[in-house]
Design a protein around this nucleic acid. Structure first.
Lengths: 122, 122
DNA sequence: CTGTATCCACTGGGATACTG
DNA sequence: CAGTATCCCAGTGGATACAG
């Protein structure tokens, strides 16, 4: 939000930039399944994570959503998509190094969520 | 997502808990205006933040959304609401200490958003 | 001033069926 | 297997008018 500043316009500009940045983050990471998928893939670096396998193991996700979320995340360089020319074809998804570096942020959200639930329960 | 574990059920349980926690966080903090409001209030600890003032200064928010977001955040103990019995009444909102402690998380999101935008631009 | 109520357009996301 | 296409409904959120 910027620091309090005599020059309101400068502060407003800074403020807006930061708010946009925050919204960017939430848009890119806040999707219904995105962080879940990221953590799923981060725990299966050595496995072949095919579309079907992911859908089977992530309870409740539809093909439509899985397609969409994976596509979004690929565009944001968080995951990679590899088409294997078997017959019929298979596709393998993996988290990228860039994707790995957002995991700490995800962990913070998990921790805060746990703490918050405990706090609210009282 | 829990660590890789021989016992699939234990891992699944842990996994679900953590995913729930992550969703909790995103639900509580990911609203369209919530983090924005939190940062707005954190920069105005000494001011009287009335409903109208907030609405005037946060560009684009409707009364309906402002009401809803403030109510949500009050329920989550992130902000406080004080009715002042002037005539007509005024209401002042302020961030709580608990609310203040989520700001670092918000800052991380801002920073990641900035970095990510830079990364994607290339 | 501080909201609520209502209407309404748009979107997110599930179910299902279908394609390459 | 890996998606796409379609339908459809519930929930978001804006605009406007109204109420305490």
């Amino acid at each position: 939000m910027g620091t309090i500043n005599i020059d309101g316009n400068v502060q407003e500009a800074t403020c807006k930039q930061e708010l946009t940045a925050m919204r960017d983050s939430l848009d890119v990471l806040g999707g219904k399944w995105k962080l879940m998928l990221l953590r799923y893939l981060s725990n299966r670096l050595e496995e072949k994570n095919t579309f079907k396998k992911i859908q089977r193991e992530i309870e409740g996700i539809s093909a439509k959503m899985l397609t969409k979320e994976l596509k979004d995340m690929e565009l944001n360089l968080l995951i990679s998509r590899s088409v294997i020319k078997t017959k019929p074809i298979t596709v393998e998804y993996a988290i990228t190094n860039y994707g790995l570096n957002v995991l700490p942020l995800a962990e913070n959200l998990v921790q805060w969520g746990l703490d918050h639930r405990a706090k609210i329960k009282n």
